[in-house]
């Protein structure tokens, strides 16, 4: 766990009620190659699932299937027992996704980017933009165009976006990319807090992220 004193921007109340993300008989075909088939996983509130596998085994494909951006060739993903592809599933409001592309426009400042992306959430983010950036120790970058930030700083901004999100499920594809050791410590800390509050996390990572006391599961591709 990260030990240095962090600004304690934490949720006053955790998420209420049970939540469950489940994948059944997932199959993914890319071109003419079958990346994986008959894949099963499930996770409940307060648990994290790390997807493991060598390059090219379909970690990102699985992440995108979980977000619904990519459609599985077979099988279903369900959120609280409802197939995410059902017309009335309203799944989009329940997760926050961080992909390889961080979603930040180069010309805009972190403040402008996070303001816009916050409006795409189901409800107003629970944490202010400045506070969320403070959390990642880049409060001084608030009004600098993202093009002028380093890759690590941009990744911190993108993580601040996820941290502010009211969503219960975090879907993170390589969240530790470009982060230095202290930043990975912060990431581990906020992930742990999110899980302790009753959240769920699905992630891939080449760097070790120490989630402390929380149950972490893994899925080998």
């Amino acid at each position: 766990m990260h030990s240095s004193p962090l600004p304690q921007a934490v949720r006053k109340t955790g998420f209420s009620g049970p939540a469950r993300l489940e994948g059944r008989e997932i199959e993914c075909i890319r071109g003419h190659a079958c990346l994986f088939s008959n894949l099963e996983f499930a996770l409940e509130s307060g648990t994290a699932l790390q997807i493991l596998g060598a390059n090219g085994t379909g970690k990102t494909s699985l992440i995108r299937i979980i977000t619904g951006l990519t459609e599985a060739d077979q099988g279903t993903i369900s959120w609280n027992q409802v197939n995410i592809r059902d017309p009335g599933a309203a799944y989009a409001g329940h997760f926050s996704y961080l992909g390889h592309r961080n979603g930040l426009n180069d010309a805009l400042t972190p403040r402008e980017n996070l303001h816009y992306l916050g409006k795409l959430e189901a409800s107003e983010p629970w944490l202010g933009i400045g506070d969320s950036l403070e959390q990642f120790e880049i409060g001084n970058c608030l009004n600098i165009p993202c093009a002028r930030l380093s890759a690590g700083q941009q990744q911190r901004v993108a993580l601040a976006r996820v941290y502010r999100s009211p969503a219960r499920l975090w879907v993170l594809d390589e969240p530790a990319t470009a982060l230095d050791a202290p930043a990975i410590g912060i990431l581990a800390e906020i992930m742990t807090r999110h899980l302790l509050a009753g959240g769920l996390i699905v992630y891939t990572s080449h760097q070790a992220i120490d989630l402390g006391p929380v149950t972490a599961r893994w899925l080998q591709l």
Binding site: A92, G93, H100, G103, L104, N105, D106, L120, E121
Partner: peptide, 13 residues
Amino acid sequence: EDGTLEQILTSAH
């Protein structure tokens, strides 16, 4: 290219 489109398509709105 910057991933905003992914955020738009996974938006709750």
